[in-house]
């Protein structure tokens, strides 16, 4: 199949940037989206052009490094799928595909489709952990955990930190990301001692980074590759109000 790509190109963080059109031919429907870009990049390199910079690593949907807004939807229209797991068979021959980076002030563009998501790390630094130095832990069976709690904590903990929630949110809010961690640790007995301070510190840091506020649109959970549920945000609000 043949496609027309409209790709955001931006040489440096200060560059104004623009959409550039590329024609890609003989795309196999079995290719992944990133493989399609690989093929285009190989061509660009041989033509002496700058290949399109994009972040990616594991290419199996778990590292959270890849991410682009495809036709206006973070990670593309296929649900619960990272960009690397999206395959070309979901596109029509002859289609025009628009590819843009995550757009949010706290995620400045580094180059082309690469953005700086270190704001997420700083939110974790503010309190997204349990303070337990290596070697100081009690036996793992010392505290039983209800299976339901462990399962719910796991569901929240599957967040891969890709940032699609921010990219999709009309408010540019990082609530789902922050809430996932607050919920994960808040549901487990090990996370209780720091529960209040964690919620407060992480939410404050999120605001400080310049993310928008949550208006419960649900766009975040709809594009989340791991389907982190919206009720984590209610949990975060609960913990934050309590703190």
């Amino acid at each position: 199949m043949n496609l027309t790509l409209k790709v955001w190109r931006q040489k440096t963080p200060d560059d104004k940037g623009r959409m550039v059109k590329y024609l890609v031919q003989d795309v196999s429907p079995d290719m992944s989206f990133l493989e399609m870009l690989d093929v285009l990049n190989e061509r660009l390199i041989l033509e002496g052009d700058d290949p399109i910079a994009f972040d990616h690593d594991c290419r199996e949907g778990i590292c959270g490094m890849c991410g682009m807004v495809i036709n206006g939807v973070a990670h593309g229209e296929q649900r619960a799928t990272t960009t690397c797991q999206l395959h070309m068979r979901h596109f029509e021959d002859g289609a025009t595909v628009t590819i843009e980076p995550w757009r949010a002030a706290p995620f400045p563009v580094v180059k082309d489709l690469v953005v700086d998501r270190s704001a997420f790390d700083r939110i974790i630094q503010a309190g997204g952990f349990v303070s337990v130095p290596a070697g100081s832990a009690p036996d793992a069976h010392a505290v039983p955990v209800k299976k339901d709690d462990a399962d719910a904590a796991f569901d929240a903990a599957t967040c891969i930190g890709c940032g699609a929630c921010v990219a999709a949110c009309p408010n540019g809010s990082a609530s789902l990301f922050t809430a996932a961690k607050i919920t994960h640790l808040g549901l487990l007995p090990q996370g209780q001692p720091e529960r209040d301070s964690r919620a407060k510190a992480m939410v404050d840091q999120m605001d400080l980074e310049g993310f928008g506020g949550c208006t419960n649109t649900g766009e975040c959970t709809a594009v989340c590759p791991k389907g982190i549920p919206l009720d984590t945000i209610a949990q975060m609000n609960r913990d934050y109000l309590k703190a």
């Binding site: 290596a134 070697g135 009690p138 069976h141 209800k146 299976k147 796991f154 640790l185 996370g191």
Partner: peptide, 22 residues
């Protein structure tokens, strides 16, 4: 054995049984 203790204390949500044990 220490690794499991450490990970659980950090909040790693290992699979559990209905009795609450790992």
């Amino acid at each position: 054995a220490n690794i499991i203790d450490q990970a659980v204390a950090q909040g790693v949500p290992f699979a559990r049984e209905y009795g609450g044990l790992l």
